[in-house]
Design a protein around this nucleic acid. Structure first.
Lengths: 343, 343
DNA sequence: TTGTAAGCGTTATCAT
DNA sequence: ATGATAACGCTTACAA
């Protein structure tokens, strides 16, 4: 009823000392059955709720962890957040979810907030060259786990997808349809997944003996607009590609729009393969072939690792496999793609 | 360098008392220029970071607010969260984002966590009949704001969309195309928006003299699968509707899938209008006509209200307008729509 | 098993 | 303007 009922109140009502009350409520074994009962009752009657800040201040454990994603509105990261959060909850940890919004400054702001709030650990999908507050966290010996992305020069456990495998699945799939000119819509070099995917793609070009025209490789920033711009650049080149590979869902949507705007049809005039399996990708026209990772598992695993580190364990990095989900956006074979004729 | 550098360390290094150090760092005017300079320098050199828990403990202000959405993976709520978070950040408040996952028990769990963490206020998109911990929050006089949804019997300021107007826009639009049999895919009656939209739809039926066949009204739960089920039920009835109105984006996608599965074409055999303008709705085939609210504004406004309440103000509820974005999914006129086979 | 009391890092109230 | 010092609500030795 009252705004703030403290342990003292509970103790008074139960007729014991605050020490005893504290021991009962935090489940210490050194308590009598009688005390347990009376304290529990008093706490319930008074509607007592422990003050997490006070406890944390005294016991150096806040039972809160920070989760910093690069863009909450990206369904991929929303899923990661969901997975991580559920796992934390199961260990009665509270998750502070923050959104860097693909902005290095905001990333630093929130890392600072995490430090100030004295969370027990941080999971981050980092961006930028990792100078800023990431080093500060490390120096403060804050338990840290990277998810999806990593930063060079940090000895931090990570949970990532097997990007090389993903690219390989995509390229092999396109090659099987006879494509040799694949337009690559990549991520920014400042993000590890951007780099890993590009290098895997370059390898694939060599391995499958594809057209290595540098004009076929265009960089984006994991946002929708950049996918459109990249698509425009690729399609307006003198010898446009017969297939497009976008390494992020948002950029794929952007590219799709651009393709449409030009009156071309995906899966008909042009093949398209995207990264990330977003729930509604199957509803697009045509349904999009994707290379997918289990975002929820990514988040859940990262949280498990973090809780390990917090509890003094030494977590090993995990690489999760990707898988190809073939759908109609990539059914067009290379030869027909050039001919632009209807079926 | 060190794990924990406290105010005492800063004070010692600056050669002043902790009191003075505290005053300088919290921007009290009662400080000399000399002290300011030395303390600032010492803090910087030591890499001092204020302990939010200790401050909160002493000053009864945690500078943290809780935001509880019903489903982070729903883009609509992700946008709300983004708007709210950015607004909070501008007032240097930290947002604890939690996900009820459309689950009343989890909602209660997080409300409890907010209470325990002693946040300064809570924004919630509530569900259920509002018995649980919502009452507890109210009794604890926790500043509270409802966003998107409300709960009966709570005197809490809210930021909602004008659902009646939204329904009206949608129905008027469909009526203008000659539709009189509109299939309604609604939300759960346990959520205020579900109720408000249904009642507005019933009004619209009367006002526009539409077919009031009760079979045309099917309930869902704001999740994708329920939209599919509802669509199936509507389309397999003896006299199927010529247009579908889904009051949520996820259910609209579910319905769309079901329509496709039956070999029907939206915008051709059947009109479809959805609530919520999701970024990629324009990319579906055909682009979806929607009744949209500005989710980001919803979140930002809610946070503004909450900060008002926290600072002792008395916030007034806000109702934001909706608007119709006509696209190709509703271009089919009623007459051509009848010509299809039911399964 | 229980009570007492000393902190945890701040801020706020006093004097000075 | 500044320095002591007492809280804030809790946990945890240390005694009893």
């Amino acid at each position: 009823m009252d705004a703030t009922v403290t342990l003292k109140d509970v103790a008074a009502r139960a007729g014991v000392s605050v020490g005893t009350a504290s021991r009962v409520l935090s489940g210490s074994p050194a308590t009598s059955a009688a005390a347990r009962e009376r304290v529990q009752a008093a706490a319930a009657e008074l509607g007592y709720r422990l003050d997490a800040r006070a406890r944390a201040l005294r016991s150096a454990r806040s039972h809160a962890v920070g989760l910093l994603v690069s863009d909450v509105r990206n369904p991929f990261f929303a899923d990661i957040a969901h997975g991580a959060e559920q796992t934390a909850l199961a260990s009665s940890y509270v998750t502070l979810l923050a959104n860097a919004n693909e902005d290095t400054a905001q990333q630093d702001t929130y890392l600072d907030a995490f430090l100030t709030q004295r969370v027990d650990g941080v999971i981050i999908a980092p961006q930028g060259e990792g100078c800023g507050n990431l080093r500060t966290l490390e120096q403060a010996r804050m338990p840290l786990v990277f998810v999806d992305r990593t930063v060079e020069g940090f000895d931090v456990p990570s949970v990532t997808a097997d990007n090389a495998q993903g690219i390989d699945l995509a390229v092999a799939h396109l090659v099987a349809q006879g494509h040799t000119r694949i337009g690559y819509i990549g991520g920014p070099p400042s993000v590890s997944t951007g780099r890993a995917r590009l290098s895997a793609f370059l390898n694939a070009i060599a391995r499958y003996d594809l057209d290595d025209d540098p004009e076929l490789i265009v960089g984006g920033d994991f946002r929708r607009a950049s996918g459109g711009a990249a698509g425009a650049k690729l399609l307006s080149s003198r010898r446009p590609p017969t297939a497009l590979l976008a390494v992020d869902s948002l950029m794929a949507v952007g590219a799709l729009t651009e393709v449409r705007r030009r009156g071309l049809r995906i899966g008909h005039d042009l093949a398209l393969v995207a990264f990330d399996d977003i729930e509604w990708f199957g509803e697009l026209d045509p349904p999009l072939t994707v290379v997918a990772h289990d975002a929820r598992a990514l988040g859940a695993t990262a949280m498990r690792l973090l809780l390990d580190v917090i509890n003094g364990g030494t977590a090993e990095s995990v690489v999760l496999p990707m898988r190809l989900i073939p759908r109609q956006s990539s059914t067009v074979r290379a030869k027909t793609a050039v001919a632009h004729t209807a079926t």
